[in-house]
Design a protein around this nucleic acid. Structure first.
Lengths: 223, 223
DNA sequence: CGGTGTCTCACCCCTGGGTGTGAGAGACAG
DNA sequence: CTGTCTCTCACACCCAGGGGTGAGACACCG
């Protein structure tokens, strides 16, 4: 099955070059092109391509906004994937594009065979990034220290205390916790007190902070 | 400058195959190999390769642990990069490996030229992932909504209230906040009370949670 | 000019929560 | 078997914090 492709780039020469290169592949067919973001959105709505090669910088409407609209208007049946292209390696664009749902991000100076490979990969539902982009993405998210320091704070806590702290970090009152653990409120108070003493806290508010900072609980995790 | 490479895999045939393939490249030299994790750590300590091709599954010590140790013992001068390999596409391994600091993750069924490319890319300091892995990584991190829902909760707060909430989320007592903002404790109580009313909170502990969940404050940010 | 919103502050009430002390039961190691 | 640790609970103290009501000072806007 051939890959139905669209090219959105403001430079005619680039469009022609990419089209020639990709049309030469037996499994790729360039079905449309556009010279700005608005035209890209309109053309995508008309031709429903499998994949759009989208330049980031374009007049009238940039590639990011165009990508957003194309992805937004994709009716469940035919989903169009986006492969972003950029001349420069500007990472602001990268994160924004990936967040929007783009499936890939390549630099224009990549060798032609890489582009062809990328088209096939993205069209198959996988994703592909330029190596430098990959590195940044990984760094960005895993740069967050594995906090050996932080979890060490919690090492002094017993299993039960950790459990109580987790409940405190969910916003429960002592009474709530007592009910939840089926123990008396006094017991909960004892646990909470020992947690404070061990971790040098004063408030249950500070305990919540500690739980988040230590990674015991995380923003966005199942409540 | 040639890339000094090490291969860690428990299957001798795989080691031989990779070595032959890579040694055939003029810019790559296989300087060591290892058949298990422990041997890999020892060999890396001895040869200081630029790059280690590391199989995930190995006897005695798995590739993840070996990677962790090699990365941990890298003295600032000679840093060794890790390219993880796996036969199966098990994503638990992927996240763990990348979190540890691996620079890439490939499936063994990738075409040989991809492996060679990956070696050069990773050795150059960039990163490279198998397409399916890339897709998952992107999904994993951008699937979490940029929380238009969450920040919208905070929209009802005035600038001053937001400021107070931020201080609450740092673990400050009302008295602390009053001193910090140079207002009376009563004023702080009023603000805090209105925050609770607007956000439907009961505790300052819950306020801290709200601050983290909304992204007003983030784990690991400057205290 | 009057209405609205924000920031400020005060007084009162009272419960929840943080603190201290003490202690019994069960598990486990030496 | 004795010491240590953990989990459990109780009584008591006290105050920071949450809740209600009201109000003065600005600023902004129609």
């Amino acid at each position: 099955m051939t890959i139905r492709l669209m090219i959105a780039d403001d430079q005619a020469m680039v469009r022609a070059g990419f089209a020639a290169l990709l049309n030469a592949q037996s499994d790729i067919e360039v079905v449309a092109d556009a010279e700005d973001g608005e035209a890209a959105v309109a053309a995508a709505r008309l031709h429903h391509p499998d994949l759009v090669l989208m330049d980031v910088r374009m007049p009238r409407m940039d590639g990011l906004e165009a990508a957003r609209r194309i992805l937004a208007t994709s009716d469940g049946a035919h989903l169009t994937r986006i492969l972003m292209l950029t001349t420069f390696d500007v990472d602001d664009y990268v994160y924004e594009a990936l967040r929007l749902g783009a499936s890939g991000f390549l630099l224009k100076d990549a060798p032609p065979e890489d582009l062809i490979t990328a088209v096939r990969v993205v069209a198959s539902g996988e994703a592909l990034l330029a190596p430098s982009v990959t590195r940044r993405l990984i760094e960005e998210f895993f740069a967050r220290p594995t906090e050996p320091v932080r979890t060490s704070m919690l090492e002094s806590l017993t299993a039960r205390e950790t459990e109580v702290l987790r409940l405190v970090a969910r916003g429960m009152s002592n009474t709530d916790i007592a009910a939840h653990l089926v123990v008396s409120v006094q017991t909960v108070k004892t646990h909470v007190g020992k947690i404070f003493a061990k971790l040098g806290l004063r408030d249950r508010a500070q305990a919540v902070i500690c739980a988040y900072e230590s990674g015991l609980v995380t923003a966005g995790d199942p409540r």
